[in-house]
Design a protein around this nucleic acid. Sequence first.
DNA 1: TCGATCCTGTAG
DNA 2: CTACAGGATCGA
Length: 256
Amino acid sequence: MPELPEVEAVCRKLRTVEGARIAAARVFRCASATLPRRIAGRRIHRIERRGKHILIRLDSGFTLHTHLRMSGNLYSIPNHCLHPAAARVIVELHDGRGIILEDNRALARMEAVSSEKLDQRLARQLGPEPLSEQFTVDAFVATARAARQPAKIFLMDQRRVAGLGNIYAAEALFRARIGPCRVIQGISRVRLAKLHSAIVAILNDAVQSACIAYEAPGEFAEAEAFPLAVYDREGEPCWVCGRAIRRIPQRGRSTY
DNA sequence: TCGATCCTGTAG
DNA sequence: CTACAGGATCGA
């Protein structure tokens, strides 16, 4: 499921547990064994997002750090006893509610770690937030000038920009009319500026769509879904030129 | 900087 | 049955 927009929607919806106190936690399968004793009794201070990472700040200097990877989901339920079968972590709150990390593929990760160390680690591993003031055209161009990667690989590299994944990287390149295999270094400043604004516009729109979809799943949300111009549209006609969209492998993943 | 790998589910 | 899935990490 999740790239930046979906993770943002998860965070916003999860904010109803801010202020709640954790009673206990249960982990299943290979989830972190030290997690329960590190978070039991702590209060949830606030919920933040960094790239695709979800940060549940506790009052103890620890953070409940979650990454959904490919197939994870994180949400609260009114009664922690009524958890789904695919739950990997159940955080039981004092008020009876529960926070569920669900993932049938078991790729998602949740850990309780020192906030300071986590922030240092994320600062090292992640580039600027694309929806923040930090993400300027100048900074983006400077980063691109120093990289020799194909454009699509560059955009998916979390150290360059935080939060883009396979879908929105392809969509942004398409909107900016940049071939995914072109080396990012050789692209003109004007076109990089176009790519920069495409990234911001697409992510903003996708956040809106994701929030609607998470808030009220159904036909209305379906109608408001972010329209994907190229992703998963192999063989279908391009909305601009009418020719069939092609799929190529890049680094073992599909690019459209 | 690359492919292989972690898992399970689903589409073809 | 195989191929592939919105991700990231590890070792070569």
